[in-house]
Structures are given as structure tokens and as C-alpha cells.
Design a protein around this nucleic acid. Structure first.
Length: 657
DNA sequence: AGCACGCCGACT
DNA sequence: GTCGGCGTGCTC
């Protein structure tokens, strides 16, 4: 055939903002067969020799570019790893946050594994297993058919999870939320559609997978998480490219997984900070899920025991429908002031009498959970005489005691403080001022003599405990699931958890407590110790949405996120000022800063309404590209020339404000 | 990021 | 004349 050679439009796999656009290449005849949209390619960049990796986005007949086109160098593999949907999603998500599309693609497309790919290509000729393998069964605990309707009609819902645990057919126990989401996904699968389920961490992932295996065929369930070996990850990715529907369950990057006929995206516990991408492009899984659900017209479920302020906003503007359990299910939450019982052993002094009685009674029947704020034994030690926090004599890091009877050691450098002398008063005696999970366990072990005490924290993870009587001391987020549920739950360190300098402490605490409370057996007391006010009320009435609504109203008055959006701009003072000055007039509400950082950098924060987000992102992005393109070297203080630092823009940073 | 182009000072 | 150092700008 002697038709005119086609033109391939290629996105380079490059982190450079100025290369975040499509470049045109001529498709040479010998590549005409394999050069298809979505394949990985190599292309020459600047005078021959250097080749760079990229994705073939589309084939067109005529180039935009006026000039001589270079030839496509190689088609790396015939597998179209970048679907049109993912490309559109990556472009939209990147544009929204003034980031690179290729950064999104890196999250959605795992590195190529040649062996895995060859095996997959060889096996594709074989007949596919038929039958979607999803079992649609009625979803209990809500108005009958409510969730089924939402999935079928591609609704967007904020789902209040049932705060209970449920027994799976195999006998194992999991959060009830996992059963609800697994059933919704299985319904999707039975209808021939794929579902993506996004969880913050591995513990949640394990529960959800266990629940899924009760409702869907094993081969339809695909894991996707960053801790998988590359080969396994790529194998799962490739199987998502097949036309059969799948249920994809994974962490935040699973929201970008390919999925044929996507019917549902569900996100569990969207307030968990693990849903926020800590590296470029910094996009929150919730935002990506919102965009993707809109783009692919699929159902969206944001499910949680609590209500994030962000989700509350979406409910209030009518973007999400609020769906609550029917009939209502609430744990029995008891709020107590911090007061020690007169008749308890000294070691348990921080347990008030009501909690003490609850624990004592419950221990007759089964396991009792004690939630504490900090891991370790005594994370902070201080001078006994002057009370000043003890510091390491080597590196000035904080000293702590890791095990009962151990010498204090530095949390930063690990040095053991053998002959410690207080830098303030020259005292030599230390006292333990905080209790970690280990020390609480030790004290409770003494107080409840003869009871088995076990500790669960980040270092000593425990997934589940049996139904026998035991005291389980766990740090927040590390609570094991007890068969049949805990007979009592003590939330001990509320005061300390609230004593963090963060606008979001209230939201976080409510989430930690609510997630723990959901592990209780029906009717078991959940004692919240030493906390009052709206948080305690939200727990006692199980109306986390009311707390979120009040919080959102406050933020609206203050013009804090998520009532408005923000972008932080970091760079040299002039560059930052210019970048902000060139944003379209009227798009920005106001600018905070510039605040000086180290290295002669400053940070300014611009606030703007959601309606102006696209304009602000476009204009700040232009400033970033301009800065990267003309990186003029400028004289530094001592007359030498140093490269100008890059201008950094980050949207919706959860750490700010 | 890399790499080539080009403008200006120092050399045969 | 012309060699090459380093700032500047581009990548289809």
C-alpha cells in the first residue's frame, strides 16, 4: 500500500513540564502494523542518537507541527497499555492539579515485564474462561434495593457504613463495610461490568478481599497495590486489559487501573490520609475517583464510618446522595470525663470508674479493646527534677524507652543514653512521661491479673484475635478484628490525640474512634474517655455527618478548604510573585504570604473557588513551564552563578491550613 | 534533563 | 582568522 504515511502523536515519559504535550512523529512503513494507539514507543528527541520512551496516543493523517517530522524509532510492545479512557483521565486529572499527565500514567501503568507480557500474549489465544462469576445477592442493612439501584443507575452516593463486623461464609470476620462493598462489586460483575475498589491500607485490603471471595469468582478479583512484586503487578494489570469484567481492589493508585466497562468505583474511608498521593502529582484518590466516575458515567460510592468534610461538601452541593443504614445501627457509646476511680489499682489510674467497670464486666465474656495514641513503651522521657523533655547527647533527638526496663535511647539516631545528664538542671534521673501501648499493656496486665494482654501496633501487627477473654491494647488504626466483636472498647487517649496542632485533628480523631467503635459486638459498650464537646456528642449520637456539617460551615466562614480550593506556589520571591500576578484577574480570592522558607525560597498560597480552578491551574501551569524553559542562571550572594530553583505548584495540599 | 547553537574573548 | 567556553533555548 502506498498511502501517505500516518502521523503518530506521542506523549513522552518525562517529568518535565515543558514536555507534557503531544509531539508528532512520522510512522515508517515497517512500523505501520504495530503502531497503534496506547502502545509504548521509543522516539528520537533532538538530533538523532538519543531516544526517549513514550506512549502513542493517537494516529492522525496530518501533523499539527509545521516542520520535518522525525520517524518513530520503535514500537516497544504491541500491547495497548494506555487505554483512551486512562489517557483522558490522566489529562483531566493532571490539568486540574497543574501536573504532568505522565506522572499519572506512572501510577496507572506498571513498569513493563517482558517475560510476563510474553506469557500473557501467548495465553490470549486460548479460549477465555466464560461466566463473569459475580453473584448478585440482596444487600442487607439498607433500604432494600437502595445500593443495588445506585450501582445499576450509576448514581453517586456517600454511604454510611454499618458500624459492625460480619462473619464471612468461611468463618472469618471482617468489617461490615467490606461485605457491603463486596456485594456491590459482585452485582456489577454479574451485570458484566468491572468495579474498582480503593482502600487506604493493607488491613482494609485484606478484609475486602476476604469478603470479595465470598461473592465473586477468584479469577475475577485482581489485586493492585504498590507492595506487590513488579511481575505480579504487571500480570494483574494485563488481565485488567482483557474484555472480561473484573473487580480490582487496591490502594490509591488502583483508581487509575484499566477496567473494561467500568460500572462502579468505590472508595473506603476517604478521610484516611493514605488516600492522598504524597509525591507528584499529589492527587487525592477521592478527586481522581470523582473525575473518573463522571468521565465514564459509572456509579461512585464513598463509604466510611465517618464523614469527611470534603464528602460532606459534596453531599451539600447535591453531587452525592446520602445513604444511611436502615434501620439505623449505632454502637453504644459512653462518654466519660477523665477521672480515676477511687477503688482501682494505681497502675490503672487513667481509667475512669465507668470504663473500669465496663472492662471488668466485659472481660467475663470475651475480648476487650483498649485504644491508645502511641506505640512503643514510653515514647517520651523527661528529667525527673526539672521536667524538661530529655534529649539525646549525640544528636539532640528525643529520648524514649522502647521496652520495659530498657535504657532510654534516641528515637532519631538510636544511641543509648547510658550516662544521661539533664542539659537544663544537670539532674541525672529520668521519669517516663508518656505511655505507649506497651506500657499501658503492662499496667493493665497488673491491674487485671490473670488476663491475657496483647499489644498490636505498627511494629507488632495483629490482624485478628479470637473470642476468648483478652485485653487487646492497640494503637489507633492497628486494632485487630475480634471474632464476634469486642465485648467492650475503651478509647483511652482521646485527650492526647486531640492535642496535635492540626486543623484536622477533630476529623482524624472522630475517624479513629469511629473505626474502632465499629469493631464492637452488638450492644457492647464503647467508652470514650476524657473527651467532651461536639466530638463526644458526634460519637454518642453516631452523627459524624452533623460534626462534618458544622466543621464545613466553619471552614466556609474562614474560607478554608474544602470550602475553597488552594494552591501553594514555592520558588524565588520574584518568580512566585510573577506567577501569581499573571493569574487571570478575578479568579483568585486572595493570596496568603509570601512566607519565607529556607534556601531563599518563599511560599505563597492562593485561594480560589472551585469554579475558577481550571483557570488558576492553567495559568500557574504556564508559569511553571515558563520557569522551566528559561532557567536563567542568576548571581548568588558571593557572585557565583547558580541555577534558578524550579517553581513548584501544588494544589489542594492537605497539610496546609 | 541533555544537547546543540551562538556570541564573545584569546589564541595561532 | 577561528577555537572553544558557557549562557540560552529547544525537544515533533
Amino acid at each position: 500500500m502506498s498511502e501517505t504515511a500516518r502521523v503518530a502523536r506521542v506523549l513522552l515519559d518525562s517529568p518535565l513540564p515543558q514536555l507534557d504535550r503531544l509531539l508528532d512523529y512520522r510512522v515508517p512503513e515497517e512500523l505501520a502494523d504495530t503502531a497503534a494507539p496506547g502502545v509504548r514507543v521509543k522516539v528520537p528527541l533532538r538530533s538523532a542518537g538519543r531516544v526517549s520512551n513514550g506512549f502513542l496516543i493517537e494516529l492522525v493523517d496530518k501533523a499539527d507541527f509545521v516542520g520535518t517530522l522525525s520517524d518513530l524509532d520503535t514500537v516497544v510492545s504491541p500491547v495497548p497499555v494506555l487505554s483512551p479512557e486512562l489517557w483522558t483521565l490522566a489529562r483531566r486529572v493532571a490539568d486540574r492539579g497543574a501536573g504532568n499527565a505522565s506522572d499519572i500514567l506512572r501510577l496507572g501503568i506498571p513498569p513493563r515485564q517482558v517475560r510476563v507480557e510474553k506469557a500473557w500474549l501467548a495465553g490470549r489465544g486460548a479460549p477465555q474462561r466464560s461466566g463473569a462469576g459475580g453473584m448478585a445477592s440482596p444487600i442487607h442493612g439498607y433500604q432494600p434495593g437502595r445500593i443495588e439501584d445506585a450501582v445499576r443507575d450509576a448514581q453517586r452516593i456517600a454511604l454510611r457504613a454499618i458500624p459492625r463486623i460480619a462473619q464471612l461464609p468461611g468463618g472469618a470476620w471482617a468489617g461490615h463495610w467490606a461485605v457491603t462493598l463486596a456485594q456491590a462489586a459482585a452485582q456489577c460483575l454479574a451485570g458484566g461490568d468491572s468495579a474498582i475498589l480503593v482502600v487506604p491500607d493493607y488491613r482494609d485490603q485484606d478484609q475486602l478481599e476476604a469478603a470479595l471471595h465470598a461473592f465473586a469468582a477468584d479469577e475475577a478479583i485482581i489485586r493492585m497495590d504498590a507492595r506487590q512484586p513488579n511481575a505480579e503487578r504487571y500480570r494483574g494489570f494485563l488481565s485488567c486489559l482483557e474484555p472480561e469484567p473484573r473487580i480490582i481492589v487496591g490502594n490509591r493508585s488502583a483508581v487509575y487501573a484499566p477496567a473494561s466497562r467500568l460500572g462502579l468505583i468505590a472508595l473506603w474511608d476517604d478521610g484516611d490520609p493514605l488516600h492522598a498521593e504524597p509525591l507528584s502529582p499529589y492527587v487525592h484518590a477521592r478527586d481522581a475517583a470523582l473525575i473518573r466516575a463522571d468521565q465514564q458515567s459509572c456509579a461512585l460510592i464513598l463509604a466510611a464510618h465517618t464523614r469527611s468534610v470534603e464528602t460532606q461538601r459534596l453531599v451539600e452541593i447535591g453531587w452525592l446522595h446520602d445513604v444511611a443504614p436502615a434501620p439505623a445501627v449505632t454502637p453504644r457509646v459512653i462518654v466519660t470525663a477523665q477521672q480515676a476511680a477511687a477503688d482501682t489499682p494505681a497502675g490503672a489510674a487513667r481509667i475512669p470508674s465507668a470504663a473500669w467497670r465496663a472492662a471488668t464486666d466485659a472481660l467475663e465474656a470475651g475480648p476487650v479493646l483498649v485504644q491508645v495514641a502511641r506505640p512503643g513503651y514510653a515514647p517520651v522521657v523527661a528529667c525527673r527534677r526539672c521536667k524538661q523533655a530529655a534529649r539525646c547527647t549525640v544528636c539532640a533527638g528525643p529520648l524514649g524507652v522502647t521496652r520495659a526496663g530498657a535504657k532510654p535511647s534516641c528515637a532519631a539516631c538510636g544511641a543509648i543514653a547510658a550516662d544521661w545528664v539533664c542539659s537544663n538542671c544537670e539532674g541525672t534521673a529520668l521519669s517516663l512521661v508518656t505511655r505507649g501501648a506497651g506500657r499501658t499493656a503492662e499496667e493493665l496486665g497488673r491491674a487485671f491479673a490473670g488476663t491475657r494482654v496483647l499489644v498490636a501496633d505498627g511494629e507488632r501487627p495483629v490482624q485478628r484475635v479470637g473470642a476468648e477473654r483478652a485485653l487487646v491494647v492497640a494503637t489507633r488504626g492497628a486494632e485487630p478484628i475480634a471474632d464476634g466483636g469486642y465485648r467492650a472498647i475503651l478509647l483511652l487517649d482521646g485527650e492526647r490525640m486531640l492535642a496535635r496542632e492540626n486543623l484536622r485533628v477533630g476529623d482524624d480523631c472522630l475517624r479513629w474512634w469511629s473505626n474502632a467503635a465499629a469493631l464492637a459486638a452488638p450492644g457492647a459498650p464503647v467508652v470514650l474517655v476524657g473527651v467532651g464537646g461536639p466530638l463526644a456528642q458526634a460519637m454518642a449520637t453516631w452523627r459524624q455527618d452533623a460534626y462534618a456539617a458544622a466543621e464545613f460551615a466553619d471552614r466556609r466562614v474562614l474560607r478554608f478548604p474544602p470550602a475553597v480550593r488552594i494552591a501553594s506556589v514555592v520558588g524565588r520571591a520574584e518568580t512566585v510573585a510573577t506567577a501569581i500576578a499573571e493569574i487571570e484577574p478575578g479568579a483568585v480570592i486572595d493570596t496568603l504570604g509570601p512566607a519565607p522558607l529556607d534556601d531563599a525560597l518563599v511560599r505563597s498560597i492562593v485561594r480560589f473557588d472551585y469554579a475558577h480552578g481550571a483557570v488558576v491551574a492553567r495559568d500557574l501551569r504556564a508559569a511553571v513551564v515558563r520557569n522551566a524553559t528559561s532557567r536563567r542562571k542568576r548571581p548568588s550572594g558571593d557572585g557565583r552563578f547558580v541555577p534558578a530553583p524550579t517553581l513548584k505548584v501544588r494544589f489542594d495540599d492537605p497539610e496546609i491550613l
